[in-house]
Amino acid sequence: MAKITTSNFQKGLFIEFKNDIHQIAEFKHVNPGKGSAFVRTKLKNIRTGNTLEFTYKSGEAVKQLPVYIREMQYLYKNNSHHIFMDQKSFEQYLLSEVVTGKFGQVLKEGEIYQVYVHESDAVGIRIPKRVSLKVVEAEEGIKGNTVTGAKKTVTTETGVKVQVPLFIKKGDVISIDPESGEYLERIN
């Protein structure tokens, strides 16, 4: 475990905060009026996905944690855990659905994901900005309904239901924001 100070802060770095693994999502320097320098950070707890803010004294020592990103194939879900397989070592890793959160609902079996590993445990998963999903069930859009912003619910290949505009049909591929579960656009 390496000790670093706030001057080594970088976005994406893994550090220990209150005995848990956090990733630096943002950091900014501040000087309160007529006071010494501080560093405001947004820290993402990679186990829970929660983000919190903390302000460090400039120059304060912090523990950097050796967390690696490994490419893993998603295999299946077993009770409350998602099972992944490391592409190089073929070892299997468990990730709790608490960690994957909403993203867990759009994981596709057989696809490759980037999983955070600390010591010998999978501790988090890198969530992309958007995910594409195939629509497997959709009602026909009601003809003549031209109300702007009108929505309907469709079911996608992973079983997750999404609110989409009326023109989306069965067989379409749509892009959604995996953190909010919101529809972004039609891809095909």
Binding site: V30, P32, G35, S36, F38, F54, T55, Y56, K57
Partner: peptide
């Protein structure tokens, strides 16, 4: 660590 640094750290984290 000075009194001012700790005070300001509490101020920035908990009050501001």
């Amino acid at each position: 660590t000075t009194w001012e640094q700790l005070f300001n750290q509490i101020y920035l984290n908990e009050i501001e």
